[in-house]
């Protein structure tokens, strides 16, 4: 069953930034800039089996994606954060792949929104 929620809910995002177009553009730019680093930190933590680092990196990405109303990325990052907190690293590689897929679907949407704003 596919998730009916949008990859990026622009309406919710615009309400979140109070209709401030300048802020919206700035936030989208920051997300595109920070996302590769956040993903790299998560992958490194999974590879190194560092539960604390995984929890922190996934938490930060979840927070940022939350402001963008990117539900799929939020859910996938939340799962990784939980796995890190509970030290269940055996499940982490699969969850990281799931997150990577969600991010791969989100980034083009953000890029499009960024160009349109």
């Amino acid at each position: 069953m596919t998730d009916p929620r949008p990859v990026f809910d622009r309406e919710v995002f615009e309400r979140q930034v109070g209709g401030d177009r300048e802020l919206a553009t700035e936030i989208l730019r920051m997300f595109l800039e920070d996302c590769p680093g956040r993903m790299a930190a998560i992958k490194a933590a999974v590879e190194q089996g560092d539960a604390n680092a995984l929890c922190t990196a996934a938490h930060t990405l979840k927070g940022s994606a939350g402001y963008l109303a990117a539900a799929h990325v939020v859910d996938a990052a939340a799962l990784l954060e939980r796995l890190g907190r509970e030290g269940r690293l055996a499940d982490a590689p699969a969850a990281a792949d799931q997150l990577e897929g969600a991010v791969a679907r989100l980034v083009p949407e953000i890029q499009r929104a960024s160009l349109a704003s």
Partner: peptide, 17 residues
């Protein structure tokens, strides 16, 4: 906030007020 996106959204919102 260590997340600059969260910090920027919050700061701008508070500045508007």
């Amino acid at each position: 906030d260590d997340d600059r996106i969260a910090a920027a959204v919050l700061a701008q919102t508070l500045k508007r007020w």
